[in-house]
């Protein structure tokens, strides 16, 4: 059986930038085949040369990505996607404005062919606190924030510094335990959104390094390549020992004492997935570790991984 496909959920109210974020992914040039499930195609933008087919229920992009209608039966839609000859390498589901995104992530937790990836919740820096004070919406806002593994505070260019700080503090008071990043135009580094290691991309094309000029302020990433063959049990212990400032780990590593020479490794939030790598021998092995700027530095990471091994 193939490694489980990561399923990520993009939640947040109307107008918070979900579609902008998904548009960036659908039009990416990394070679990773994403499937994006949306309620409404209306605002999906296709770069002229990227569209391959549009049949009303789905848009197929020349880069291998596909955008499908969510429909009434998510399970049936997911089953169809996974049954394809070339199933997507990652699935992203756009939760409707008022949905609790956790209920969608539950589908991944219940299906052995899926891996529960991040629940990403977007909030609009301009309107978040108004919504949180609105009787009609406050508890829905709270539920969404409670469900998040990563909060994207978007439209920060449209508020002044005081407002931005106050909104961040308000969010931190709700969720001090997860990364909260500030963006404009929902520009989130590609590596944060993608659960697929670049070396596993079906088309061997590496993403340019990288998007968004304030990338360095939002996240740090460390690449640990030249990994020697690891003991999987010890690797799992190392991953479990990582602090919550680490958002994502992904990569393909050589392993000891197993029939399969390589394993795919993914950590998303607190979920860990380690599965045999079924593809052709990877162009390179190693782990990409992504976290907030206060994540452990290279030396500390080396210690965590070495101490456990």
């Amino acid at each position: 059986m193939a490694a489980p496909v990561p399923l990520s959920v993009i939640g947040g109210f109307l107008g918070t930038g979900k579609t902008t974020l998904l548009n960036q992914l659908l039009n990416n040039r990394s070679g990773i085949r994403f499937a994006v499930l949306v309620n409404d195609f209306g605002d999906i933008v296709v770069d002229g040369d990227l569209i391959a087919d549009h049949d009303g229920q789905s848009i197929t992009f020349a880069n291998g990505c596909v955008c499908c209608s969510l429909g009434n039966d998510l399970l049936a839609t997911l089953t169809q996607l996974l049954a394809q000859d070339e199933p997507p390498e990652q699935i992203l589901v756009e939760a409707s404005g008022v949905a609790d995104p956790r209920t969608i992530a539950d589908f991944a937790a219940l299906d052995s062919e899926l891996f529960r990836d991040l629940v990403i919740v977007l909030v609009d820096a301009q309107t978040l606190r108004q919504r949180a004070a609105d009787d009609r919406l406050s508890d829905t806002v709270t539920r969404q924030i409670a469900a998040a593994d990563l909060i994207i505070m978007n439209k920060c260019d449209l508020v002044d510094a005081d407002e931005r700080r106050a909104t961040r503090l308000w969010l931190q008071a709700q969720r001090g335990d997860i990364p909260i990043i500030e963006t404009q135009h929902a520009q989130v580094p590609f590596d944060v959104l993608s659960a697929v290691p670049p070396s596993a991309a079906s088309v061997a094309k590496m993403p340019a390094h990288h998007h968004g000029r304030n990338h360095t302020e939002l996240f740090r990433s460390e690449t640990m390549d030249k990994v020697e063959a690891v003991d999987l049990k010890i690797l799992r212990q190392s991953l479990e020992a990582l602090p919550s400032s680490i958002l994502r780990v992904k990569g393909i590593v050589p392993v000891q004492d197993r029939d399969e020479p390589f394993f795919l490794v993914q950590l998303s939030g607190r979920e860990i997935e380690i599965a045999p790598w079924r593809g052709t021998a990877p162009a390179r092995t190693g782990l990409i570790i992504i976290g907030t700027p206060d994540m452990p530095d290279r030396r500390q990471l080396d210690q965590i991984f070495r101490a456990e091994s």
Binding site: F13, L14, G15, S96, G97, V98, D100, D135, R136, L137, D139, T140
Partner: peptide
Amino acid sequence: WPGYYNGAENGLWYIDPEE
């Protein structure tokens, strides 16, 4: 307000009130 008599938390929107 004041919501459910037994104190259950408020229910769910099936459509976004802004949509």
